[in-house]
Structure formats: C-alpha cells, structure tokens
Nucleic acid binder design. Structure first.
Lengths: 102, 102
DNA sequence: TCCATATATCGAGGTATCTCGATATTCTTC
DNA sequence: GAAGAATATCGAGATACCTCGATATATGGA
C-alpha cells in the first residue's frame, strides 16, 4: 500500500470519476456477448464515456491499478477493470490514520 | 470544501508531514515569550524542522490553508498556523463518500 | 498465415508543480 | 521614521504531469 502513489492517482478529476463509474456496471454499455459473467469493464467502454484518447485511458487505468484502486483481468483481447474494494478501504483507513489527530 | 484543492495539497510528502507535526505542539520549540497561550506554530519553526526555504514553507502553508487543513492567525509579526480539525474531518468524510461504494 | 480489433507503450508538446533566491510587505523597537 | 525581523509574494529554472497521435504487442477469426 503506497499512499504516495494512491494520492497521486486520485489527484486527477477524471481518474476519480472513472473510479465512481466503476461502482456500478450499469454506467456502461451491456457486457460483450459471451462475457456476461465477467466482472469489470473493458477499456473501450471507459474511453467512450470519458471522451479521452485510448492511450490516455489505458495510462489512467494503469495508474489506478498501480495505486491499488482497481484490478485488471485479461480475457482474450480485452482487459476488464474493476474496483478493488478491499484496497480502497485500506487506503481510506491509512489516510484517515495519517490525517486524523487521535 | 474544495476536494480538488485538498487532494492537491495532500499530494506532497512534506505538506503531509507538516500536517502531522502540527498534531502536537511539542514537535516544535517552546512558544515565544509572551505567546504561550496562542495556539499554533510560527512559520520559522516549521521551516527549521522541514529544512526547506522560507518562501517554500510560506507557500506550502498558504496551500494548506486554501485547502482548509490549517488556519492562520496573525499576532504581531508572526503568523501562527494550526490544524483545522473540523475541516480535516469534513474532507475525510467527503473523500470517503466519493470513494466508498455504498 | 494474414488481417482486424483491443490494449499497451513510446515520444513529444503544453501545462502545472516544486523549490529557490530576491524582493516586497508588515510589524516592532529604538 | 529608520532599522531589523517575520512573513508573503514574485520570477525563474528544473522537474513532473497531462494528453495526444503513432507505433508496438497480443489475441481471434478467415
């Protein structure tokens, strides 16, 4: 858990928005046929919603992954990203311990 | 409460360390004579501990203040900075609401 | 094997942040 | 009001971040 990297990843409005979008699969188009049971959203869907370039979104997801906020799972040619709730909770606990007085 | 500005202020290790130092007055030299009852720490003390230039620390404290993490109080030629626990708590609640799923 | 698709990586231009020294401002004291 | 001290602001060079298009890599299908 690298709090430095995590805060840095959060220091960008679009990356935070993506994290919010990923709370609910229904923020994105329906799953690809044959992939209905896979948790997570492919990069193309996130890019479409964010309206940023493919390389930027791929980079963002890599940063969010390094920060521990998301997990990536490859299925065929797609990479599916989903939130890592445990790590997110761990980060919140850590930042709270660092910021709060007692 | 500008979460954008707050996260940006936290996105620097020394600024976070200063916030931690300010949890406890005893992290700094004793109060100046005649100012024993004033809450907060003057810029010079923070600078001495941080070992960064005066202008940098002044700038950092300004950023922490804009972010709502500290309050500034002028007494004569000194500016005393102290943590704003209410705003810190408010920030933590806000970031938790944004990050946490339910 | 060759091609199309999805994603990752690379290189670069623009912008913001970091940090400093120099200077300005504010306040105290003589 | 002049000098000195504490802090704030300014200007600048170095570094990091943002974002893109171009290219590379991996996968699936004809």
């Amino acid at each position: 858990m690298d709090i430095e990297r995590s805060i840095s990843a959060l220091n960008n409005p679009m990356r935070r928005r993506i994290l919010e979008w990923l709370k609910d699969r229904s923020n994105f188009p329906p799953a690809l046929p044959g992939h209905e049971d896979i948790e997570g959203v492919c990069v193309a869907y996130i890019q479409e919603k964010a309206k940023l370039s493919q390389s930027t979104i791929s980079n963002y997801m890599g940063l969010l992954k390094q920060a521990g906020f998301v997990r990536a799972e490859r299925h065929g040619q797609w990479t599916f990203y989903r939130r890592d709730e445990e790590n997110i909770q761990e980060f919140l606990t850590a930042v709270q311990a660092e910021l709060l007085k007692k």
